[in-house]
Design a binder for these strands. Structure first.
Ligand SMILES: [Mn+2]
Ligand SMILES: [Mn+2]
Ligand SMILES: [Zn+2]
Ligand SMILES: [Zn+2]
Lengths: 140, 140
DNA sequence: GTATCATTTTATAATCATTATAAATACCTA
DNA sequence: TAGGTATTTATAATGATTATAAAATGATAC
């Protein structure tokens, strides 16, 4: 556990981010919980153990992580901004019944289009929606 | 032009939507301008010729179009909901410099992942970001 | 160790997109 | 034309995000 915190500190330092307690805890939350939390979920969970935590800090920190490419934004829904510490290219599937967001692999090469040959691409997002197997079976 | 309006009316009727003046104009806007407008862009443009138009009507109508699959939501950015009357599967590229949103073809088969074989997929979105050729050349 | 300055966090207010509500208008049918 | 329904409008309420300034923390110099 201490080792893990040490790792988190290293991750932050590599990006030239001062490892404040708040930043470590928010990064830890994203890395441990891989459930693509909203800002409010992060805040509500962390404020339990850090009573003085401010929403503004969560917003600021997530924005900092995003700019430093420590986290990516998942805008699969237009009314909730979610965050993901897994920054490699992968797809997201949201179940419209239970709300769970699943990761799935995406073949980057297959995604290539000639129409974009003169475009400089810096970010790729693949979002699917539908019903997950669990909800699908339950509803039958 | 009258013919076109007639087409729009037909499109609405096929979806069992009563073709009110507002609905026709909003659909026309989406079909003619293929630039993935935000709600506010639609409202600000249309209110010029329809001074009594209400933002609520634009919101309601777009939501109706979405539910009827006459339009799709483009949530490429977390702070702006855009709409698109082209509902077939295709990708969107947003230039982070000029803000233009480009369409590009997506090979649906290539997007398939075994990990989703038990999922019921109802919606597929592919969003890229980066710099468009125009901005790329200008900046050099 | 203390003073000083910069960074980070916090509390709070402001903004802005969206949604909710209820009244007004338009539309339809008898 | 009257009465009922659907749609639009104006307005208020909500809720997420951003802005601001003060407080707290951390680093540096003496
Ligand atoms: Mn993910
Ligand atoms: Mn499009
Ligand atoms: Zn589900
Ligand atoms: Zn551009």
């Amino acid at each position: 556990m201490n080792q893990k915190i040490k790792d988190l500190v290293e991750i932050l330092k590599e990006k030239n981010i001062k490892p404040s307690y708040q930043r470590i805890k928010i990064l830890e939350y994203l890395v441990l919980k891989k459930n693509h939390p909203t800002v409010d979920e992060i805040f509500k969970d962390l404020v339990k153990e850090m009573p003085t935590l401010s929403r503004a800090t969560v917003y600021n920190t997530l924005d900092l992580f995003k700019r430093s490419e420590l986290a990516r934004v998942v805008t699969i829904e237009d009314n909730e901004t979610r965050y993901d510490a897994e920054v490699s290219v992968h797809g997201h599937f949201k179940c419209e019944n239970c709300g769970t967001i699943f990761d799935f692999p995406v073949d980057e090469k297959a995604l290539y289009s000639d129409a974009l040959k003169d475009f400089m691409i810096t970010e790729k997002n693949v979002y699917f929606k539908g019903i997950c197997p669990k909800c699908h079976n339950t509803n039958k």
